[in-house]
């Protein structure tokens, strides 16, 4: 548990999760899956915070993770509500169907 390479590898894992999440945002067409990919990215960031907090020996990173979780919960609630509203209007969840707001 005190193995220092844990921190290094945890940071690399966090980058990998962030990258996978990003990829999901680009490749998937279902709005809900896109939202889940974003959750994946957030978890990657959270992992980095926890790892750096462990390395630095302070708790600020942990507090930040706490707030990220709160914001993620709020975001998920509002985001899913928007998804429901969109589905009601267009009867689809294809993200490319929602492109009315363009310049």
């Amino acid at each position: 548990m005190d193995h220092p390479s844990f921190v290094h590898h945890a940071v690399l894992l966090s980058l990998a999760l962030f990258g996978l999440g990003t990829l999901g945002v680009f490749l998937r067409r279902n709005v809900i899956t896109v939202l889940m990919s974003i959750e994946l990215m957030l978890n990657g960031a959270n992992l980095a915070f926890v790892a750096f907090s462990r390395a630095a020996g302070t708790l600020d990173g942990q507090v930040l993770v706490f707030f990220v979780m709160v914001v993620a919960a709020a975001e998920a609630a509002v985001g899913l509500a928007i998804v429901i509203a969109l589905h009601r209007h267009k009867d689809t969840l294809d993200i490319d169907a929602f492109n009315v707001m363009k310049g």
């Binding site: 990003t22 680009f26 492109n99």
Partner: peptide, 15 residues
């Protein structure tokens, strides 16, 4: 000039 940036596709914004 800047209008075309707003494509309406979420993917472009994300990038």
């Amino acid at each position: 000039t800047l209008r075309p940036v707003q494509t309406g596709f979420v993917r472009h914004y994300v990038l």
